[in-house]
Design a protein around this nucleic acid. Structure first.
Length: 735
DNA sequence: TCACAGTAACTC
DNA sequence: AGTTACTGTGAG
């Protein structure tokens, strides 16, 4: 197409629509209709009259860019990144301008944009690129990802931020106009370290200081870091209440900021965000933006815009913050990558770890993947050489970790009949001793029915002999069946101990607080859980108290806990997913990390018959070893992350049609479809029987698998095939 | 072989 | 919700 200049030529396809756009002569109707009708050829922008727009459309086959004409009145505002409204068929839909162009490839008529919602560009170019990469990776649509990435606009907040930008509250003028690209490097202020009241938290780690030096120098190192347990020293040198990990993250952020770049910290929940923010303040890092979805629309959009305009050197937030627009991003931190809140529950179900890994590659930023436990996915990043490991030497760990003991049935056997009780004598004694000097943490698994099958002897989760998927008990305890390929488990034998007995694991743990109250009359019992009357507690005082919590809801105890009891260990290691072992270890280590070092009397007791591998890893405080072992096993058995899997679920017919168009889903690559256990629809009723097919391909074919799945979804929406299907790459429950 | 109407696909 | 591309049918 030739350029479109001042003289519109009729044969320019891009301009053919103009006379039609004029519409009928305006009658005596209101101003809106009149303006619309008056829009003619002369009122189209003179330069770059075409806006390339990404529209917020649901159907997969409509997932592409569309060209619109830019009315002269919008010529200045319709810049890349701004929200617009445009006519698409019968309706007006919203979208983002992604580019301006002189001409269009489109051969038909172009419609004019209806409205620029705001001249302030909400969608930055790097975020758009990231969203595209995420859509590609997860076989999703760009519109779906953008819905996750950009929070709903809040006009009042926008006005407030733009005003602040126009007249900076105090110091030097920042940006006067909302430009598309915020200056790449801005003088960033760090209050000089409120000079090291305590030592560099990175000093004990191999490679820790080097990592921070790289950050300062503008490098992009990538690390998987296993933090030491414990709390950072307070200003007076005593044990404080800020976890060591948060303190160390703050220091890494400070190095990044001192080097003239910005940082993004993503955490699993609001309490962890608070802990990081507090540590940032203590470390003297300037202002930060707290970007949490559950803070509500206004604070959320305020944090988003402050990030977007480079008003905060650090953004701290939960899952959705993984897409936060942070100009000149130097460091991305992900804390607790094994937590399930980091898996996005909305299509296309991206996981924060994958998104942030993609992101730091695209933006040349450093990555710090930190967690008390270690996921196999993190281990895979190490194994491939993509990231380096940051750990402390064993002797440093030993000096800081509590004493850990596992009370297995072998040890409990000595106790006789009482051993079946949930609180054996050894655990009771440990709690009693701990209460003499401080609070005692009691972690209980969430209540729930777990239709899972484990080895009857060693409690290792049972796997399918054919595809290595986890076994489950469908319906009324028929024969155990593979939840992936549907084969019945006949002649099963445990990989771990060779036993052939299977056992269903279904345990609840409701009455713990009550039981403990009876066991320790006169002691304060506090409960921290989302279902508890007081909700989740952030912090408890140093005095004696029993603190009962569910995993992930552990409050920090001032000065550290004297002891921790980890109850119902068998339940913790018998989840359905492949990650049951590493997840259990993660939860235990998260609790154990809040306990005082052994030399100060801190001890941890694991109670109940857990699978041996995670139990051993807890006793040795060694999540790396477990992850390594699990990764080796996954490679051997062709399980993710050594392979790529996609789950296609929905009604049988729709799943069949969708999978049928995916060339890679043939032969051995296709498992199932298998009927899924009926899922309550929220009102108690059950939906139509749903099935799930699993496609498993080598990692080298991941991109192609995603492409084919997306193409099949596009065909499905174009043909308006009935029913419903959901496509999930690396679904949470299969990792 | 072409015109035209009813229909399916597309939507800038 | 219009517009366009398309297919099938019937007249020439």
């Amino acid at each position: 197409m030739g350029p479109v200049n001042d003289v519109p030529e009729p044969e320019q396809p891009a301009l053919l629509g103009l006379d039609d756009v004029q519409g009928p002569a305006s009658g005596p109707r209101g101003g809106k209709a009149r303006r619309k009708a008056a829009l003619g050829a002369h009122e189209i922008a003179e330069v770059l009259p075409v806006a390339r727009v990404v529209l917020d459309l649901q159907p997969a086959h409509l997932d592409r860019e569309y060209d619109y004409l830019v009315p002269a009145s919008m010529a200045a505002d319709a810049q890349p990144g701004v929200r617009v409204r445009a006519r698409f068929g019968p309706q007006e839909v919203s979208g983002y301008v992604v580019a301006r162009a002189a001409t269009s490839e489109h051969t038909g008529r172009l419609m004019p944009l209806r409205r620029v919602v705001s001249g302030d560009p909400a969608l930055s170019e790097p975020v758009l690129r990231l969203a595209r990469a995420v859509a590609d990776r997860y076989a999703g649509t760009l519109a779906d990802v953008l819905r996750l990435a950009v929070p709903p606009r809040h006009a009042r907040v926008e006005k407030e931020i733009l005003a602040a930008l126009a007249n900076p509250p105090s110091v030097e003028p920042v940006e006067t106009t909302p430009v598309v690209n915020v200056p790449s490097v801005e003088p960033v202020e760090t209050t000089p370290p409120a000079e090291s009241t305590h030592a560099d938290p990175w000093a004990p780690y191999r490679g820790g200081e080097a990592f921070c030096r790289h950050l300062l120098a503008g490098g992009a190192p990538r690390a998987v870091w296993t933090p030491l347990p414990g709390l950072a020293p307070a200003d007076d040198g005593s044990v404080g209440h800020v976890p060591h990990w948060a303190d160390a993250i703050a220091r890494a952020v400070r190095a990044t900021v001192a080097g003239g770049r910005r940082a993004l910290v993503v955490v699993p929940d609001a309490r962890d965000a608070d802990r990081v923010c507090e540590a940032l303040e203590a470390a003297g890092v300037g202002d930060h933006a707290r970007l949490l979805a559950d803070d509500g629309p206004a604070p959320r959009y305020r944090a988003f815009l402050r990030a977007r305009h480079g008003l905060a050197p650090v953004v701290v937030g939960t899952r959705a913050a993984m897409f936060a627009p942070v100009p000149s991003l130097g460091l991305v931190v992900l804390w607790g990558d094994g937590e399930d809140t980091l898996a996005e529950p909305h299509a296309p179900y991206p996981h924060a770890r994958e998104v942030l890994a993609l992101r730091c590659e695209l933006e040349g930023a450093a990555l710090l993947l930190a967690s008390p436990g270690r996921t196999v996915q993190a281990q895979a990043l190490l194994a491939s050489g993509w990231a380096r490991e940051i750990v402390a030497p064993r002797d440093v760990l030993r000096a800081r970790a509590p004493r850990v003991r596992a009370l297995t049935s072998v040890e409990l056997a000595a106790e006789g009949p009482g051993a079946a009780a949930r609180l054996p004598t050894a655990a009771w004694r440990a709690a009693r001793d701990g209460l003499a000097s401080g609070p005692v943490l009691v972690q209980v698994p969430r209540t729930g029915y777990l239709p899972v099958v484990a080895c009857g002897r060693c409690r290792t989760a049972a796997r399918c002999a054919h595809c290595h998927g986890p076994l489950g008990l469908p319906r009324q305890a028929a024969a155990p069946q593979c939840t992936w390929c549907g084969r019945l488990a006949g002649g099963w034998r445990c990989d771990e101990c060779g036993d052939s007995r299977l056992r269903a694991v279904r345990v609840g743990s409701d009455r713990t607080a009550e039981e403990l109250g009876r066991a320790f009359p006169g002691t304060t019992v506090r409960v921290s859980a989302s279902t508890a009357p007081g909700g989740v507690l952030d912090r408890v005082a140093a005095g004696p108290a029993l603190v009962v919590c569910t995993p992930g809801a552990e409050p920090v105890a001032d000065g550290g806990y004297a002891a921790a009891l980890l109850l119902d260990a068998a339940v913790a290691t018998s989840g359905t997913g492949l990650a049951a072992a590493t997840e259990a270890l993660h939860r235990w280590l998260a609790a154990a990390s809040l306990v005082r070092p052994a030399r100060d009397g801190g001890q941890v007791l694991l109670v109940g018959d857990a699978a041996p591998a995670p139990t051993g890893a807890l006793v040795r405080f060694d999540p790396a070893a477990l992850a390594e072992r699990e990764l080796a096993e996954r490679r051997e058995l062709a399980l993710p992350p050594a392979v790529r899997v996609a789950a296609v679920s929905g009604d049988r017919e729709a799943v069949g049609a969708l999978v049928g168009r995916v060339a890679l889903a043939g032969g051995e690559a296709l498992l199932g479809p298998v009927e899924l256990p009926p899922e309550p629809d929220g009102r108690g009723a059950t939906l139509d029987p749903r099935v799930r097919a699993v496609v498993r391909v080598p990692l080298a074919q991941s991109a192609e698998l995603a492409r084919q799945l997306r193409a099949s979804l596009a065909v499905r929406s174009a043909r308006r095939e009935g029913g419903s299907v959901r496509v999930q790459l690396d679904p949470k429950e299969m990792l």
